[in-house]
């Protein structure tokens, strides 16, 4: 399906390229969009968005979330006693997340 959509969409661009006008009359036309002004500086800069703690937390907890599926999908076939360690794990993770959020709230800009 991925391949099909690619194969189906590429012609759209090609057709568009064929029937649309193409004029390179003015180099200003090909400048990046900067509200009518000539851009100053590069578009790809070293750009630090704040809210860094969230990204750090994401790296950790995204993996955790996917690992939980291994447990969740086989939960019906596991003995009930196997759930307790998982609940402990969830509790630890939840506590860790709360602590991380608390810390990130204390320092607004990293």
């Amino acid at each position: 399906m991925f391949g099909f959509a690619m194969a189906a969409m590429a012609p759209a661009l090609v057709i568009s390229r064929m029937i649309s006008p193409r004029k390179s009359s003015n180099p200003v036309k090909f400048l990046p969009m900067e509200c009518g002004q000539v851009p100053t500086g590069e578009g790809r800069t070293h750009f630090m968005m704040q809210y860094y703690p969230y990204i750090l937390m994401f790296v950790v907890f995204d993996v955790m979330a996917i690992f939980l599926y291994a447990w969740g999908s086989s939960l019906l076939y596991l003995p009930k006693s196997a759930t307790l360690p998982m609940i402990g794990f969830l509790g630890i993770m939840f506590g860790a997340m709360s602590f991380a959020l608390y810390q990130s709230g204390r320092r607004r800009i990293w």
Binding site: S16, F30, L31
Partner: peptide, 13 residues
Amino acid sequence: KLISKEIIIPAKA
């Protein structure tokens, strides 16, 4: 309309 419009690619893209 979209398919008949010119595709402009920024200069240093």
